[in-house]
């Protein structure tokens, strides 16, 4: 920053007026036009539609050309607060994303620490390449893969595993199961499977940021510890973890701000039999709005979600400022 000031000495002497500066930057305004157009049309214009949240707005209002009926005021919100499926969706959103978040943190940090211990450069590179790979598959592909390998197959007795999905076949062979289980339609199993799918896809990718933090720890610290006679475990506990604690916290907070956003991983993976444990706010919004044609109510749910998100982000921002001196946005 100091550098900057040196270069702009003449500016400090006499700062040009706003008009002069605007003229100076006229081409930049032109360059911003494409950005502004996309931004306004696809992001800000829809915000005007938030008013539908305060109206009765269904297919009937469109076909009869009456337009949204605003006489209900906060009706959609009172309906939402007393609605069982909404409560379930809200709870599932929090539970699924929070547990997933904690698992993500634990797995990624642990694996990052272990990767860091690999001495062989080639080995490290191969491990990283393989672990990052699933991140680049879409949720549709990840869900498709899991559906195939988790299939219960055609033989319900489990005697013949040639037609059973891969995982079921393994579990049957090991004697852990005596009958194939259809994991995806089983309310008890579904969340676990979903966590596993998430970890399979994202754990490797999650380690990158910790690896970057680990590589920036000064080797002097370890040398000093070694001279003091600290073993490997102690070094990890007293040097490594405290050094990356800040990163862990920041990542955690950043993701905490996003916990209401869980959507596509559920959308392509759930089915009606497990709605009770899998339906999240965004999937519920989709079903109410697109399948149920209740546009007003769906917008109200969306708005509720956005407001909760906004609160979470602001909270994260404040915490972030406390921890590292600057906010998250």
């Amino acid at each position: 920053m100091a550098n900057n000031n040196d270069n702009f000495d003449h500016v400090i002497v006499k700062k040009p007026s706003v008009g002069q500066r605007m003229f100076k930057y006229r081409y930049f305004y032109l360059m911003f036009i494409p950005v502004a157009i996309v931004l306004l049309i696809f992001y800000y214009w829809p915000m005007l539609g938030i008013r539908y949240a305060f109206s009765t707005f269904k297919l009937k209002q469109i076909t009869l050309r009456t337009g949204p009926d605003y006489s209900i005021g906060l009706g959609n919100f009172t309906r939402l607060l007393s609605s069982d499926p909404f409560h379930a969706a809200f709870k599932n959103t929090i539970v699924l994303s929070f547990i997933n978040l904690v698992l993500a943190m634990v797995c990624s940090v642990a694996i990052a620490l272990l990767i860091n211990e690999i001495q062989n450069a080639w080995g490290k590179k191969i491990v990283q390449t393989v672990l990052y790979l699933p991140h680049f598959l879409s949720w549709v592909v990840a869900a498709s893969i899991f559906m195939l390998i988790l299939s219960a197959g055609t033989d319900a007795t489990g005697a013949d595993t040639s037609n059973t999905g891969f995982i079921n076949a393994i579990l049957l062979q090991l004697g852990i199961l005596d009958k194939p289980v259809d994991f995806l339609t089983e309310s008890k199993a579904w969340p676990t499977v979903w966590y596993i799918m998430n970890r399979w896809k994202e754990t490797g990718w999650g380690t990158i940021i910790y690896l970057a933090a680990l590589s920036s720890i000064s080797p002097d610290l370890y040398e000093a510890a070694e001279i003091d006679g600290a073993g490997r475990m102690k070094q990890t506990w007293y040097i490594t973890i405290p050094s990356i604690m800040n990163t862990i916290l920041v990542v955690f907070i950043l993701n905490l701000a996003k916990i209401m956003n869980v959507f596509e991983s559920v959308f392509v993976f759930y089915n009606s039999l497990v709605y009770d444990v899998s339906d999240v706010i965004q999937t519920y919004t989709y079903r109410v709005g697109i399948v149920g044609n209740d546009y007003g109510y769906s917008t109200a749910i969306g708005l509720f979600k956005s407001v909760v998100s906004l609160i979470l982000v602001s909270a994260s921002d404040i915490i972030s400022k406390k921890i590292r001196g600057y906010g998250i946005v």
Binding site: P46, M47, Y52, Y295, S298, L303, K305
Partner: peptide
Amino acid sequence: IFNGGLIPTFLV
């Protein structure tokens, strides 16, 4: 951190 949501975007 804030958007119009599914239906409003569709209508736009």
